[in-house]
Design a binder for these strands. Structure first.
Lengths: 207, 207
DNA sequence: GTTAAGATGTTTACGTTGCTTACATTAGGC
DNA sequence: GCCTAATGTAAGCAACGTAAACATCTTAAC
């Protein structure tokens, strides 16, 4: 930082690229994330990033990977080890708020086809998946029938809430309101069953 | 098709553009959808589409708008007027299958920031939103407390299932399996409450 | 220390894209 | 038949992703 850095080599261009990419993403949305812009921000020639990333998609996947890790941290910060539905709800709120605070990042993480050939990205995504599954199972230990299905359902619920909020389909102007809506939605779904009667016919017809 | 079409004007370039765009989207994904490619497919000069669409985003929004309408048709086809949870589940399956059959279209509809200045798109999206809200309310008439929250929750659940399946986060290889997973997830969520106990602390802390 | 090898950036260049501006062609009302 | 508006074309700009050839730095063997 202090020295004028009259050196030819950058030092850690690989990391600088994802940092620059992340900044561009948050400043100007997904359209602002171009390899050339990344190179400019890293004060490096347009072709330099290709030494570290095979193509644009590879860089995007690297960004998505750190996004998954930061999301995981964020969820853990909301509650270290939730074991009740209400603790789980706090994690859900954190999930949605992450999406709203970093919309472009969230969209690159989930809004485009995942490059399955990128091991780092796949691993980071799988880690989030596993983490969600764990805490749901801990929060609903009595789900005798199909714990996996329940975990899927809850994740989908929260994930869907995040996307719908992101698209402005539900208009919740401020973070507190969003939090209220999320809890209200979860609450509503959890109470609907008992009052609305158990759906008896909800069985597979495809076996 | 028969006549060599030696005419200068196209006839209905506006409609031809969205048709071509839709084809490109389904053939080659979102990256294949360029204005030039659309023009090529419509056998027209690269600048011609600009007579009908201000910019690329406008065309994309038009495509998204017909996507919303086709989704609505698809949901209605699954069940014309669902009024029970199990009928609603069939609509949910149709929603997810639409996403899986036309992934690129679904992603342009929901995976990128919605252009709020495009009235047609906004209206079509709002229509879907309203439709979903209606059928959920009809299927759960006893949701005394917050019918709106319940509708939001169910939509989010299905929407999330669609996206997670789309990203391969849940691996369901064939449409029948997807259908089973969707019903299982809904089923699991609806039964979890009664067995897992009512979450007493699920109240807003932000008032 | 010298030097050869490998890693890392630069330069230059090509083809494609979104978009603008100026121009050409057509259709329909008078 | 002519004028006007609607519609498509031609040409061109800046930015993009990417590749190849070249320059520079780092490292380690000698």
């Amino acid at each position: 930082m202090s020295a004028p850095k009259a050196t030819y080599h950058h030092g850690d261009l690989r990391a600088a690229c994802v940092r620059a990419a992340m900044e561009l993403l948050e400043e100007g949305g997904e359209t602002a994330l171009s390899l050339r812009a990344v190179a400019r921000r890293a004060r490096v020639s347009p072709a330099a990033p290709y030494r570290h990333y095979a193509d644009r998609q590879a860089l995007v996947s690297a960004v998505a990977a750190v996004g998954y890790r930061e999301l995981a941290e964020r969820l853990a910060a909301a509650h270290p080890s939730p074991s009740t539905p209400e603790q789980l709800a706090r994690v859900a709120i954190a999930y949605v708020q992450f999406a709203l605070e970093r919309p472009a990042l969230f969209r690159t993480m989930f809004g485009e086809p995942c490059d399955r050939h990128n091991d780092e990205r796949a691993a980071a995504a799988a880690a989030v998946s596993l983490y969600v599954r764990e805490i749901v199972e801990r929060s609903f230990p009595h789900a005798d029938a199909d714990a996996d299905a329940l975990a899927t359902a809850i994740w989908a619920l929260v994930h869907g809430l995040a996307f719908l909020h992101l698209d402005g389909k539900l208009d919740a102007p401020t973070p507190p309101v969003v939090a209220d809506r999320v809890t209200a939605a979860i609450q509503a779904l959890l109470t609907a069953t008992s009052t609305g009667g158990r759906p008896a016919g909800l069985r597979s017809r495809h076996r």
